[in-house]
C-alpha cells in the first residue's frame, strides 16, 4: 500500500437529464397536476380574507361595512372568482379522487369501496355547506 488512491483516467459523471422549468406545460395531465397543487395558494388567500373579515367585525359596524365595500371592488371580486374556481378544483379532486383511494376504511374486516367513501364525502360537503349557509344567513 502506497497510500495513494488509484483514480481512473476518466471521471465518472452522473446521468442527469435536463428538465426544463416549464416541464408541466408539456401535457394536459401535468398541467392539471400543477393547477391542483396551486390551489393551496388560494386556500391561504382565503384564510387571509377570512381573518380580515373577522378583524372588521371585531372592530365594529363601520369596519364591517368598509370590508363589504372593499370586497366589492372589481379587483377583489376577480381575485375571489379565480380563488373560488381553484378551491372547487381542490374540493373535487380531494374529496372524490384522492381521499377515496388514500383512505382505507374497514367495516367488519372488509375495506369499504372507494365509491362509498366518495359518496360519504359528498354528503359531508353538502351538510357542511348547509351549516355554513345557516350560520351566515341566519
Amino acid at each position: 500500500m502506497t497510500g495513494k488512491a488509484q483514480y481512473t483516467q476518466f471521471h465518472p459523471r452522473w446521468y442527469r437529464p435536463r428538465v426544463p422549468v416549464l416541464w408541466w406545460l408539456r401535457r394536459r395531465s401535468y398541467l392539471l397536476f400543477v393547477l391542483r397543487e396551486l390551489s393551496s395558494v388560494f386556500v391561504a388567500w382565503f384564510v387571509v380574507f377570512l381573518l380580515l373579515l373577522v378583524y372588521a367585525v371585531a372592530q365594529g359596524p363601520q369596519d364591517y361595512q368598509r370590508f363589504l365595500d372593499w370586497s366589492a371592488a372589481p379587483g377583489i371580486i376577480l381575485l375571489n372568482a379565480v380563488a373560488l374556481s381553484f378551491v372547487v378544483i381542490h374540493s373535487v379532486t380531494w374529496l372524490f379522487m384522492l381521499s377515496p383511494h388514500a383512505m382505507a376504511v374497514r367495516l367488519r374486516g372488509r375495506r369499504l369501496p372507494a365509491a362509498a367513501i366518495g359518496a360519504g364525502n359528498l354528503v359531508a360537503w353538502v351538510l357542511v355547506s348547509a351549516i355554513v349557509l345557516f350560520l351566515v344567513l341566519g
Binding site: 386556500v43 382565503f46 380574507f49 377570512l50 375571489n80 380563488a83 373560488l84 378551491v87 372547487v88 381542490h90 374540493s91 380531494w94 374529496l95 359531508a124 360537503w125 357542511v128 355547506s129 355554513v132 349557509l133 351566515v136
Partner: peptide, 10 residues
Amino acid sequence: AALLIPALLF
C-alpha cells in the same frame, strides 16, 4: 379546506 371554503368564499 375542501369542505368549508367553497360555501364561505361563494
